[in-house]
């Protein structure tokens, strides 16, 4: 039972993790994209429809990534090139994405979709407790962990990552050193969009293989919250996503066992827990200040 509970938590946490890790990169470059929900739902509808039409779930995944990135490109064009307000543009992107996905998905409602197969490493996946958890999950689960590790290495172990962080912390001085602030921000935002699209595909191809309108149901917002929760550190996003997933699943189990607490109160637990942890973390002022991208949400226009 423990094994399957952990598996459930992993399924709940993985889309949050993927979307959050992408947004983290975008925010590290100084761009706040509140349109995660919109890009995610576009990824979900694209992943579903393309896989159904082409017969290949993987093609669906790729298409979802591309569409997510394309939506992010639109966001980038508005906020980076035309210097529109990032908060408002992100919200508009969410609105737009919810609408467009509904239009595209209209004819796919009520059709069972493709399911992305499970990676099953023989023998090892039969190990007790951790077997299926470590060796028998869907491919995107592994990808989410690889992504996190990759992003952590990229940000803190490579020159390019250093440049990206420099752009997020002090775009003016990065610019003075000859770094293309706008170029890097474009790439970071598009990476964020690609991840959001992938997270959406996870929903419609792994989590619940079907398409229904608004099926993201606010997960994009949770992903945004996780980035802050993790104080912009990749590994902490994993902790946050699994904590959030754990509390969510835990309250369902508590109900199933028959704990007599109003379910609304249990449902609000993940949110309250997030706030509490956040307050505890932010007590350490030096640490948070160090990690917060100093120019987050502020536009930068190179002077000529």
């Amino acid at each position: 039972m423990l094994e399957s509970v952990l598996l459930t938590i992993a399924t709940a946490a993985t889309p949050l993790l993927i979307a959050a890790i992408g947004e983290l990169v975008a925010e590290r470059s100084g761009v706040l994209n509140l349109g995660v929900e919109g890009m995610m739902i576009m990824g979900a509808v694209t992943g579903f429809s393309v896989s159904l039409l082409s017969g290949s779930a993987w093609l669906g995944v790729v298409a979802a990534i591309v569409v997510g990135a394309a939506f992010a490109l639109l966001f980038g064009f508005l906020t980076l090139t035309l210097v529109t307000n990032q908060v408002a543009t992100g919200l508009a992107l969410t609105l737009f994405g919810l609408g467009v996905s509904g239009m595209i998905g209209e004819s796919f409602v009520g059709q069972p979709g493709m399911r992305l197969g499970v990676v099953d490493i023989p023998v090892l996946s039969d190990l007790p407790v951790v077997g299926r958890l470590v060796f028998g999950q869907d491919p995107l689960f592994y990808l989410s962990l690889l992504l996190t590790a990759g992003v952590a290495y990229f940000l803190f172990g490579t020159r390019a990552g250093l440049m990206l962080r420099a752009v997020g912390d002090n775009p003016a001085s990065a610019h003075a050193q000859g770094i293309s602030v706008i170029g890097i921000r474009y790439l970071a935002v598009m990476f964020g969009g690609a991840c959001a699209g992938l997270a959406g595909a996870y929903l419609s191809l792994v989590y619940t293989p079907q398409w229904v309108e608004n099926m993201t149901a606010g997960r994009g917002w949770i992903a945004l919250a996780l980035v802050v929760f993790a104080s912009w550190r990749p590994w902490r996003v994993i902790a946050g996503a699994y904590l959030f997933g754990g509390v969510t699943i835990g309250q369902l189990h508590a109900q199933a066992i028959g704990v007599a607490i109003p379910s609304q109160m249990l449902s609000s637990l993940p949110y309250v827990a997030t706030i509490v942890v956040l307050v505890v973390i932010s007590q350490n002022r030096r640490l948070t200040m160090m990690n917060t991208p100093a120019s987050l949400g502020r536009p930068f226009v190179p002077d000529r």
Binding site: L78, L82, T84, T89, F96, L98, G99, V100, S101
Partner: peptide, 26 residues
């Protein structure tokens, strides 16, 4: 025109309004 179209249209309206404000400063 479905509700979805209306929402997409709203999003578009916002994009344009935000983008055009760019001309005020640049």
């Amino acid at each position: 025109v479905t509700d979805k179209t209306a929402r997409a249209f709203q999003g578009m309206l916002l994009f344009f309004v935000l983008a055009c404000d760019c001309l005020i400063h640049y």
